[in-house]
Write a protein that binds this DNA or RNA. Sequence first.
DNA 1: TTGTAAGCGTTATCAC
DNA 2: GTGATAACGCTTACAA
Lengths: 328, 328
Amino acid sequence: MSIKVVAERAGVSVATVSRVLNDHDAVREETRIQVQRIIDEMGYQANHLARNLRTARSGLVLVTVPDLRNPFYGRVIEGIAERLQPLGYHTLLCDTRQHSKQVSNHLRLIMQRKVDGAICLDPYTVHRSLAEDLHDLPWVACCEYDEDTQVPHVGIDNFAAARDAVRYLLDRGHRRIAMIGYDQSFLFARQRRAGYVAALKQAGVALDPDLLRVAPGLGFDDGADTMHSLCQLRERPTAVFAVSDTLAIGALRAARAVGLQVPRDLAVVGFDDIDFAAQTDPALTTVAQPMEALGRAAAAILLQRLTRPADLAISQTLPHELRVRASA
Amino acid sequence: MSIKVVAERAGVSVATVSRVLNDHDAVREETRIQVQRIIDEMGYQANHLARNLRTARSGLVLVTVPDLRNPFYGRVIEGIAERLQPLGYHTLLCDTRQHSKQVSNHLRLIMQRKVDGAICLDPYTVHRSLAEDLHDLPWVACCEYDEDTQVPHVGIDNFAAARDAVRYLLDRGHRRIAMIGYDQSFLFARQRRAGYVAALKQAGVALDPDLLRVAPGLGFDDGADTMHSLCQLRERPTAVFAVSDTLAIGALRAARAVGLQVPRDLAVVGFDDIDFAAQTDPALTTVAQPMEALGRAAAAILLQRLTRPADLAISQTLPHELRVRASA
DNA sequence: TTGTAAGCGTTATCAC
DNA sequence: GTGATAACGCTTACAA
């Protein structure tokens, strides 16, 4: 059923119906009410496919995430949706876990006008070569971004956050502090490692390459495996800093498995403060990221780029917080 | 840039360009190559807004979830996407946590032609009144559904699954088995309670109303709170069956807090087998749902409804599995 | 305040 | 095989 049928039935033109539909003020109150009555009566719903073509906007925002199984991303997405829904935008979700190669397909959605803009949590998407092609497109990097591009981004100060975490361990007297890091092609992994290194250096603790590990993934098992290998050192670390809670929780399990008591024998610090972190035994000490706030901020920046493209979009750094629990 | 520009540049009509774009065979190979060259050269991308209007399909599928923070839903969504992406469909995500009232807005997206169909994991969406209005629309209920509607759905046999879990506890000698259930307006909650009741009855164990609890939510704290209250009974339960892993994990924490040792003093069984269930101490015994498979099955049914609307859509029940770990 | 009509960029139906 | 051209259903100048 189209606007035309409604117009005929209401005895007005399609233009008038359209005006009523879009709350234009240039409609006589009486007419408005009459038309609205017909609309309700017929249960008419505007065809968004047509509306989108005419207005050249889809009302859709693409959100790319590396792995939905990690609850961290779920929380950020909720923050994004919270900001976007009231303005009538909907979120198109792309889990890019298996699609690192074809990721440009996702940003192509923007060019195809299928979405109005994008928020990328996915490190693959935020790759330089893509950014160069697309730096003028309305997209925002969230959490992960490329330092050399001009794409606006939101995130925390990963360097400072990691440094704070390691300093905390140093303050507690630890000197053999291991780090379970991640693939250095990711900015957050590089920054957190730099924070770790800086904290040690400042404290005059020599960097032991044996203690600086790179987990093959961000899953629980990756953390457990790395921890197991760390335990085999002749001189075990007394503390470990993991760049994600999932890794830290895996490390916790590995420590338990080899009979280490946390935090007495081994202190463990994680990163993110996902909900699980407070449920482990002992509860995980971790660096909290403001997940929903990161999502909201990214959405706000994108919205600004969409509504006032001329304005300069400003990147944002949100505060992190070391949340001390029982594991360290 | 439009198809018209490409056509002019290639020296053909827009019709021919469109044919090349859509892989129609009625194009001379030579022409096809020539046109494709221009397309590539210009970096032309078809405008999906126009295409969608013309073809009357959006290529979008709505997925409603009650709470993205629960990794359970993330896994199901991955299953859905896995099946949908290869066919060129994208998924529109709606977290309906705060929107139980206005949920009809989400299904209205179908009528607005904004999406071609929907998969609803969200219990609110799957409400009878809605189902009546929309039973002929292309949507599929996943995990939660309404027994009295004709909407196709996929899920597990919640009754049997809960019965199996409780039987396992009975087999291990438990007689005072508590249940941490959930709001009975949800089918899965009713079915799992029925399974619990049936198992006890069959074993000749009298139902103790004190042991049959309803958690106010599905979060960790809800489980912990319910467990604490259970611990205050003069005759404590020796085992507890929770209708979700999050509740069970909260219960685990509460048990620890009051000095109970699991499973010696208290056996705990959860439901879902989210990734985190294997990380707790002791690792959680739980009823596994095939999360990705549920998503894939739901997507397959929807796809069938979209491509062959005349065919009868068949609901599916997928197998569950009791995964015995250390907590019971 | 309302109506007419010109698009929006495609795809699809005809002719040729 | 290819090209005009008419939709698709809406919004929005512009005219009345």
